[in-house]
Write a protein that binds this DNA or RNA. Structure first.
Lengths: 223, 223
DNA sequence: CGGTGTGAAGCCTTTCACAGCA
DNA sequence: TGCTGTGAAAGGCTTCACACCG
């Protein structure tokens, strides 16, 4: 398929729902890489990612036609293609703001580093915490956030503060030039439209489960 | 609006997208409760929940017509209505499986208890961890999971194990009768259809941010 | 007048189904 | 033959716009 010519270069516009699934395919491909096969079908990827095969093909078609009919997708090739699309060909410097239970756990969580997200700063408002060490990082003062972010070229900010502090922290991250924020605080934050925010809210997730649990016609327990 | 008659009782079928927003309205209403007003408009709720006013009205209309035209929604009444719908009128007993960084943080996280989710068990496969205390709970053995879940009437399981262990843990939770699972492990888990699963995957969220960061025409940093 | 409740329109996403190609 | 790539259909969600009513 020829690249659509018209708008200068990036004519491909991937729907948000498809973007959100690329990491699942990426993970599945990493698993397949461990094996002795070099191609994988949309069917197999679908099972591994927990979605449906037509969806896999449709999603991958937004990246271009990289499969072979009758065979499947070449694993290393597709992996490379998705890495580039997701911007995972280089590491991203991250700052975690709020070093409570959650911030602490995130700082120690190997899964981030393993996937190319380098935590370069831990920041907290509490003077009692500033200076303490978590792993090989020292906790720094919230007042220095803007300076820290600029100085270390941090592009992703993780907010793990109480709800009350979230908006102020977001404002400072934005002021420092951060355009990607992952918000764990149970609060809505408002940012300029060029900034992306994703939120993760534990209580919300549990409440959604609670809804379905309550509305289920209760099945008897396994004997 | 008369209750649709036809199917026995629960004719109202709330779309999944609307269910996922009810916790946001719930939280917003709790905030409004702190104030000296007793009604709130869809406009105000929308701002607080970070959505649009028409959406608030549509979502609330699935619960019935509980607003007053020209005025808004009566706060305590609507709060009660949503609590019931979400099943938050009583506490839910929760088990956390996997007491690593994340499991530990979740166990200590006050936000869960504050919202009616009672952590009644911490379970881990590592014998070295079994017996250790976290808050006022002792870590118990994974082998006893089924027994623990049944004995304490646990209805919600939180999986905070490494990816490799996730499916086996899910199977045991299901065998013990759990029908609601919150999965933090970076793995797809398969469960019977009567079981609800919600997943939270840190790395996935960051990779989605990475995508948008990479595709943004980079703005110069604030001067 | 002001703000809800809701059909209808518009948009986005998923699924289908099959032509096309290695 | 087998599996991809993709138009087209179906389904779901969001937004609009306005009748309706306190």
């Amino acid at each position: 398929m020829a690249q659509r010519s018209g708008t200068p270069s990036n004519a491909r516009k991937i729907p948000g729902a498809a973007v959100a699934r690329l990491p699942l395919y990426y993970r599945a491909l990493l698993e397949v890489t461990e094996e002795d096969v070099d191609t994988v079908s949309s069917d197999r990827l679908a099972t591994m990612a927990g979605v449906n095969a037509a969806q896999v093909r449709k999603d991958l078609s937004y990246l271009g036609s990289y499969g072979t009919r009758g065979v499947g997708y070449e694993v290393p090739f597709l992996l490379d293609r998705i890495s580039r699309e997701l911007g995972l060909t280089h590491d991203w410097p991250v700052a975690i703001v709020g070093v409570g239970n959650l911030g602490h756990a995130l700082a120690n969580y190997g899964g981030l580093t393993a996937r190319g997200f380098r935590v370069l700063a831990l920041v907290d408002a509490d003077p009692a915490k500033v200076g303490s060490r978590v792993g090989d990082l020292a906790v720094e003062a919230l007042d220095d956030l803007v300076e820290i972010v600029r100085g270390r070229g941090i592009t992703i900010g993780i907010i793990a503060t109480p709800a009350m502090a979230a908006q102020a922290v977001a404002d400072q991250l934005v002021a420092a030039g951060v355009q990607s924020i992952l918000n764990f605080a149970p609060a809505v934050i408002t940012v300029p439209e060029e900034v992306s925010v994703r939120k993760v809210d534990l209580a919300t997730e549990l409440q959604i489960l609670s809804f379905y649990q309550s509305h289920r016609r209760i099945k008897e327990r396994a004997s």
